[in-house]
Structure formats: C-alpha cells, structure tokens
Amino acid sequence: MRSYRRRLLVVPALLCAITSLVARPVDAVGDGKGGPNHNGTGGDSVLSARVVKLYEDAARATERYQAGRQEAEAQRAKALRIEKLLDRERREIGVLREDLGRLARAQYRSGGGMPLTAQILLASSPDQLMRGQHVFSQTNLAVGNAIDKSRRAEARLTRDEARSAAAWESLEKRNTELARLKKGIEDKLEEARWQLQGEADASVAAGSCPGAVRLDQKKTDGAGAWVAPVRSYELSAGFGSGGLRWAHRHTGQDFAVPIGTPVRAVGDGQVVKVACGGAFGMEIVVRHANGYFTQYAHLATVAVDQGERVDTGQWIGQSGTTGNSTGPHLHFEVRVTPEMGSAVDPVPWLTKRDVPVG
C-alpha cells in the first residue's frame, strides 16, 4: 500500500494536470461566516424547511400506505380463509338438500305420503298402524329439522358473504385514499425540489453561495463515530470509473438521491470550505481529526458556514444537481488534502470505519 507521504508528493503534479482540464470551483474565504462569496441572506430557509417537512410527510404517508397494503394482504389472506369456509358451507348446504331429498323419498316409500284413512284400511293390525304412525312422525321430524338446519345454514352463508364483501370494500376504499394522499404529498415534494434546485442553479450561475440555511434537525442521527453521508440511497458512479464528464477518472462515490435529501457529515470535524460554481457546483469540504477530508458536492443548499464545527450525522446541506451533474445525486469524496487530486476510494474507507456502503 502506498504511503500517504508518497501520495502527497504527487498531489502538486496531479493538481496542475487536472486544473488544465477542469475548471476549479470558486472557493469561499475561511472567515467563519461564509466569506465574500456568500450574500448573507441565509438562502431560502422557508423553501428548504418545506422540502424537509415534505420529506417527513412523504415518509409518514409511505409508512401508512405500506401498513395499509400489509393490512390488505392480511385481509386478502383472511378473505381466502373465509372463502374456503363459505365453500364448505355451500357444500354442507348441498349435502343437506340431498338429505332432504333422500328423507322425502324414504318417507314416500314407507307410506308417509299415504292418507291416514288408507293406512288404517291397509294395516293388518293396530300395532302395525302405530308403528307406521311412529315412523311417519319420526320421518316428519327429521325432515323438519333438516329443512330448519338448511335454512339456518343458507342464512349464515348469505350473512358471511355480505360481511366479507363489506370488509373488503372498506379496506380497498381506505387504501385508495392512502394512495391518493401519498401521491399528493409526493407531487408537492417534487415541485418543491425543483424550485429549490432552480434557486441553487441561479446561485451557482452567479458564482455566489447563499448563506447557510439552518435545517431543523430534531436529533443527530449518528449512532456511531461515523455514518454514511445520506441515509437512503442507490450507488451510481464509483471511484475510479471512467466517463466523458470527468477529466481523468471519477474521484469519488456517487449516491443517487432525490433533490433536497438531507446530507450528513460522516464524522466530527470542521468545515474548511463552502463553495459555488465550477464542476462541483455547490460543495462543502470538512476536515476530520484523523487527517482526512470529506467533500460533499452538487448540493442544492448548504446548512453550515465555513469554519463551523460539525458533529457526526449532522445535516450540513441538501442534495441537488448543481455543477457538472447529469441528475440528482451526492458526489462524496475522501481526500488526504482539502483540494481535489488527493482522493482515496471512499467505500473501503467508510467500511473500515464500520460504515458498510452498498
């Protein structure tokens, strides 16, 4: 493994080569208040806060929607079980009807359908007549019970079918409402995202970073000494990959996230650079106690000022697509100096600090 000293020796040569190919971002002077490239307005804090709030609303709506879908799946499974029970009830009713037919036929064969006068005339003895009447009474009782049982079963079946259909209809209606609510919030969020990006593009085009937009972070969500720069993401361009948009090789790891996603400081440190313009658009560089620097680029807003101390997991900005960017993402670098040309692969660097990326 090459030593850091050897890397530092080749940094000047790399900087000269890269400077000739890629325009350097406009740096802010480290005065601790944003430097001359900051207009001191604090940016559009209302819009930034609205984007963060809509993210939270969308997350809650998504949770409710997913819970509704899970409930729907549970209801679907329950409906299938009920349908099996209903099928069994239908089969039982069919059996009862067959029994009724069998009893009626048996009653007819045993003379149950014969008038009482004919039975008296044809009976060979009073005992035969009494036995016939007893069988007739028992048969009539069995037929009556079977008819009553069949009617109760049919009423229960009708009631269960109606209850099942009503429950399913209610659940579908609720899920439709949840889906509509979720889409409404997402539409508002998407509109706010691009409004935020439009303002960021205007600032970058003017080469003037707005002042820090203070985001209302209820709780620093860093569980350990180090965290990933964004909470939820998909990896896109990796370290060292080739591409027409880079002068040589890709110098960081890209995290594909929507515009306005809160970006976190991966570790404790101090902001040494806040800049706008150039290939990286709106960017932040943080120095850490272990001698490394981390860069966060293509932002839509910055939430810290140059010279400010930051904690692990603290929101320092919001992702965007400013500068040399083909779409919304966070460009994240780990460097041995604050300047470009000294980057190391950030994925194994984070992995060694118990932050798996992938």
Results as ranks from 00 to 15, higher is better:
residue 1 M to D: 09
residue 2 R to C: 02
residue 4 Y to C: 08
residue 5 R to M: 06
residue 8 L to N: 06
residue 11 V to S: 02
residue 12 P to D: 10
residue 14 L to E: 11
residue 29 V to H: 07
residue 30 G to F: 02
residue 31 D to A: 00
residue 31 D to Y: 02
residue 35 G to H: 08
residue 35 G to K: 01
residue 41 T to C: 04
residue 41 T to K: 02
residue 42 G to Q: 04
residue 46 V to K: 14
residue 47 L to T: 10
residue 48 S to W: 01
residue 52 V to R: 10
residue 56 E to F: 06
residue 68 G to Q: 06
residue 69 R to G: 01
residue 71 E to C: 00
residue 71 E to K: 11
residue 73 E to Q: 10
residue 77 A to R: 14
residue 79 A to F: 09
residue 80 L to W: 04
residue 84 K to T: 15
residue 85 L to F: 05
residue 86 L to K: 01
residue 97 R to A: 11
residue 104 A to K: 11
residue 111 G to R: 03
residue 111 G to T: 03
residue 115 P to A: 12
residue 118 A to H: 12
residue 119 Q to L: 15
residue 120 I to Y: 14
residue 121 L to F: 08
residue 121 L to T: 12
residue 124 S to H: 15
residue 128 Q to T: 05
residue 128 Q to C: 02
residue 129 L to Q: 13
residue 130 M to S: 11
residue 133 Q to P: 05
residue 133 Q to G: 06
residue 134 H to T: 10
residue 148 D to H: 13
residue 157 L to E: 11
residue 167 A to P: 03
residue 169 E to V: 02
residue 174 R to T: 14
residue 176 T to L: 15
residue 178 L to A: 05
residue 182 K to V: 02
residue 184 G to Y: 03
residue 188 K to Y: 08
residue 189 L to F: 01
residue 192 A to R: 06
residue 193 R to S: 13
residue 194 W to I: 10
residue 194 W to N: 13
residue 196 L to N: 11
residue 197 Q to G: 07
residue 202 A to S: 14
residue 207 G to E: 05
residue 213 V to N: 09
residue 214 R to M: 03
residue 218 K to M: 06
residue 219 K to F: 10
residue 227 V to C: 15
residue 228 A to I: 00
residue 230 V to D: 08
residue 232 S to V: 06
residue 233 Y to D: 01
residue 233 Y to H: 09
residue 236 S to I: 03
residue 239 F to M: 03
residue 240 G to M: 13
residue 245 R to A: 14
residue 246 W to R: 01
residue 247 A to W: 05
residue 249 R to A: 14
residue 250 H to I: 12
residue 251 T to F: 12
residue 252 G to T: 04
residue 254 D to P: 11
residue 259 I to Y: 02
residue 260 G to P: 07
residue 262 P to C: 04
residue 262 P to N: 08
residue 277 G to E: 05
residue 278 G to T: 07
residue 283 E to M: 15
residue 284 I to Y: 11
residue 293 F to Y: 15
residue 295 Q to C: 04
residue 296 Y to I: 03
residue 301 T to P: 08
residue 304 V to E: 00
residue 312 T to H: 10
residue 315 W to S: 10
residue 317 G to Y: 04
residue 317 G to N: 00
residue 318 Q to T: 12
residue 318 Q to H: 07
residue 321 T to G: 12
residue 323 G to Y: 07
residue 333 E to H: 06
residue 334 V to Y: 09
residue 338 P to C: 05
residue 342 S to V: 08
residue 344 V to K: 01
residue 344 V to M: 04
residue 349 W to L: 00
residue 351 T to Y: 10
residue 351 T to R: 15
residue 352 K to C: 04
residue 355 V to A: 05
residue 356 P to R: 12
